[in-house]
Design a protein around this nucleic acid. Sequence first.
DNA 1: TAGATTGTTAATCGATTAACAATC
DNA 2: TAGATTGTTAATCGATTAACAATC
Lengths: 239, 239
Amino acid sequence: MNNKEISQAVVARLPRYYRYLGDLRDEGVERISSQELSKIMHVTASQIRQDFNHFGGFGQQGYGYNTDYLYEEIGKILGLDHPHNMILIGAGHLGSALIGYMNFRRRGYLFKAAFDINEALFNQTISGIPVYPMSDMPDYIKNNNIDIVVITISKQEAVKVVEVLNRCPIKAIWNFAHCELEVREDIQVENVHLSDSLMQLSYQIRQYELRHSREEEDGKKDSTRHPAGKHPHKNEEAG
Amino acid sequence: MNNKEISQAVVARLPRYYRYLGDLRDEGVERISSQELSKIMHVTASQIRQDFNHFGGFGQQGYGYNTDYLYEEIGKILGLDHPHNMILIGAGHLGSALIGYMNFRRRGYLFKAAFDINEALFNQTISGIPVYPMSDMPDYIKNNNIDIVVITISKQEAVKVVEVLNRCPIKAIWNFAHCELEVREDIQVENVHLSDSLMQLSYQIRQYELRHSREEEDGKKDSTRHPAGKHPHKNEEAG
DNA sequence: TAGATTGTTAATCGATTAACAATC
DNA sequence: TAGATTGTTAATCGATTAACAATC
């Protein structure tokens, strides 16, 4: 087990390994070599071995990796070996979607309560999770061992809520507000900036069109913008 | 204007520049140097200049960058200078949240219709956007100049829908299903894998605890898990 | 003109890939 | 044992940072 800081690039690949290994396990594949996995995932076998070795050797020379064992070990690294108590700040559509997503619960990410400023929602439930007034939030966190706070409110509101959260015993914030948050040094933050993602997509559209505008002009007139029949390919994993 | 392929790392930073420049513009800041921006955004001035220069020079020696001009230019690079017609596949909570998010509309990302398999939703509207049966989707795309398809359905359904989309004249897919899609070579894909993001967060929690477990054990007993009063700091931008 | 700051080249750093000895 | 495949070191590639000449 290497104790050096592991690069963000490696960490970002772990959930993807976990996903593929889970699928392989479900298919009953007992063992897999870095080369086989490399073909399936479209990354180099070398990178796979390097990545796993950051966390110590999970494989066996001449054999490969035991799918089940590797899956479990990566799960542990990602913190899936124990549950995480979560609350939601902002019981809108996005928050409701997250609460209702059963795969989170299956992995041990447990929503315990939601908080909102809309009185109409108080004491209602969303997928069985109660909604309370925002003012109850600090006490609720204190009494219910909350690890992760999920923020699905506007950036203006988010900044205010974070001032409160900085005085609460939480471990992490999963932030959907499209701003950056100033948090205590011991609070981990993961941002999901949906508009950034969408802008990257329209960047890619533009780039594709720039690259191919010459060909299209040169080619014969074609009523469909995107001629079908090209060979489908696996898209690359994005950010 | 450099015509070489621009690295994913640079592209991923553009929306963040755009966000900060928009804020500066709103605050009435007319000009900014790479060094000033560097301080605000917590990246090196060198990286800022390198990044912008991938797209040609937007600045002026001895002056810096005109905030407004730079903001507009980055907007153009990201494809925000013209509208994008979008449809939604899957009119659940997540989809409804995206349709209802006004910032997308403001930036020219226009939802035109939603499609679902749930009959109860047909001819209803979500934030003014009509919901149609899935079977109408290919014709709708053909007749309404749809650029981007937003997928908020399960991975099983997504795989099937993508087979259909591969024969439709679309430019891009914004994919929220947590699987990778096999698409035509001219279709751009941007994945939003929420569970991956959440797993990275719990990885960071675990890492923080591993790093600090020794200190905590050595230190005197403390009833609060996270002593307050540490100096808040700006969190790093995550993937 | 002098001062400031970009655009750009060069140096450094880090991440990925290749190669191969260790070993199952 | 022979074959296979890891774990790991070395080579390469790419991205970031530093430095500075160009120039506003």
